[in-house]
Every structure is written in C-alpha cells, then in structure tokens.
Amino acid sequence: MSEVLVLVESVDGVLRKVTGELLTAAARIGTPSAVVVGAPGGAQALAAELGALGAEKVYAAESADATTYLITPIVSALATIAASAAPSAILLAATVDGREVAGRLAVRLDSGVLADVVDIAADASATHSVFGGSYTVQAKVTKGIPIITLRPNSVDATPTAAAGTVVPVEFSVDAATSATIVAIHTEPAGDRPELGAASVVVSGGRGVGSAENFPVVEHLADALGGAVGASRAAVDSGYYPHQFQVGQTGTTVSPQLYVALGISGAIQHRAGMQTSKMIVAVNKDSDAPIFEISDFGVVGDLFKVAPQLTDAVNARKGS
C-alpha cells in the first residue's frame, strides 16, 4: 500500500487532537506517515505517540529555520518528502496554517486541493459541508496527488498502532521569500472545552448587553460543562474575545447541545451552528429567527431564564 502523508500539528510539543483524526483518515487510504516539521528533536519526542496513533513512519524535517519562517519550511518539507515517497494523498488539518500550506503545496506539486472537508473516503474523495451545512458535497481531486484539509473534530480517531519509525529528511528553506515569525502568543485554553470540539456550547449575543454581563453565559456553560461562544455583534461590541465567535466568519460548531442567549439568529450566525443536534434559544423577541431552528425556544429575558436554568442544572447534578 502506498504512503499517505499527514502533517503533524502540535503546540509546545503537545500533539493537537486533530493529528490523531488525520492519521485515522489516512489509514483508510493507505499507510499513514506522520510528518513533523520543527526544531531538532521534536519528531523523536513525538514518535512513540504518533506510532500509537497509527503512523508507520515519522518523517523528521528539522532545522533551526523551520520555526523561524512562516509556512514555507512546511511546504518545502512536504514537497521534498512527496518527491521521494510518491504518496497517494497528503492530509492536513483545516487550520489557518494547514489550509495555507495545502494551497501552496498544490501549486508546487501541480495538483488539486479539497479544503475543509468533514469526511475522507478510501479512494481519497472527500465530503464538504457547505453554506453552514445547507449542502453536503462529495468531491475529488482530478490531477496530481490529492491534498486535503480536514476540519478538526469531524472524524473520530480509532487508531491501529504502527511502528512510528523516525526517518530524517533534508530540506531547504528560502528565507528571502518568507515572512519571519518574531513571537508566538498562545491564548490560555482555560478549564473549558475547546469551542470547536465541545459537546455543549452556550453562546451570548448582543442581548447580553455588556462584557460585565457575560458571566451569565459563562455560568450556564460551566454548569453544562460546555464551551462559551459569542455572536459577531457581541464580539464587535467588545463583550467577548474574537476567538469565541461562532458563525460564517467564526468557528463552526456542531455540538450535542447549543444554547443561544440573546442572539437573533442571523443567517451568518446560523451558518456556524445549525447542524447542532439540539438547539435551545432564549430571546425576548418572539419573532427572532433563531426560533425557526430551535428545538426548545423561550420567549423571555435571558437574565431571568439563564440563571434559573443554571441553578436547575446544578441542582440536578447535586442530587
């Protein structure tokens, strides 16, 4: 079976969950090979874990430059490995970096790219969910090595352990045509689950009224063990940070339960949450469009309803 390359994503030496999801998807197509691009020693440190997640080989594309320049070292490393390994597909996470690497690589390898897919089949065709889940589209790459970016949390990692043999790779970086990374700032993840992966999301909109009021949303999220989200209006009004925006131009979520507090349900907000299994909305306007897609809607004041719900949830947990 031919190799399938998976670009490993990690933060401070810790694998991102999506890496396991990618290795599982890769195993459907061929033999998964993990590719680690970074500072020397990183691949060796991750090799056992990557093997356990299904990687037969762990390519170590390592140099001091690899973390200094933006995107181009990764493109160069993957292109170098692709030239010798002739993989049947290259899979990456549909993150900011992953999608940009995929695009450049498709140009360099003269092939095609499927972006932000939610499923991958054995023949390297893939499924997109477009317009906020209004359509499901099956597509394939018709020229060259298929390059595919997978949306995190769409495929369950079900690994079959493999060797995880480290294979060093020589590659070059063109510093002159690259931007330099001066500093990396990681937002503290906190105790709450990651927004895109959470099984419960509680979001607040403009109806929350202020940053000072946002704990009403957080308390309910914490009672339910969920993540906190926000509408664009809430973010733009400074109530909550940008990385928590749900919608067309924010994060797409598909949890078991989505609770919308003081959110009208504009089409661009719905695009990021309408595939949630269960939707509960609280809005004082009985004509708010959010009710059109809610399984349970409450016409009322969120400052009365949400605390009562929080208490009721906590009480049930206590009993």
Binding site: V282, D295, F296, G297, V298, V299, K304, V305, A306, L309
Partner: peptide, 13 residues
C-alpha cells in the same frame, strides 16, 4: 422549529 414557550417565571426550570 420545535416547542416555543413564553417565560412566566418557570421557563428556566
């Protein structure tokens, strides 16, 4: 759309 209720003091519960 599913159920829609108006809050009369008990909706949270």
């Amino acid at each position: 759309a599913g159920t829609k209720v108006a809050d009369e003091g008990e909706a949270g519960s």
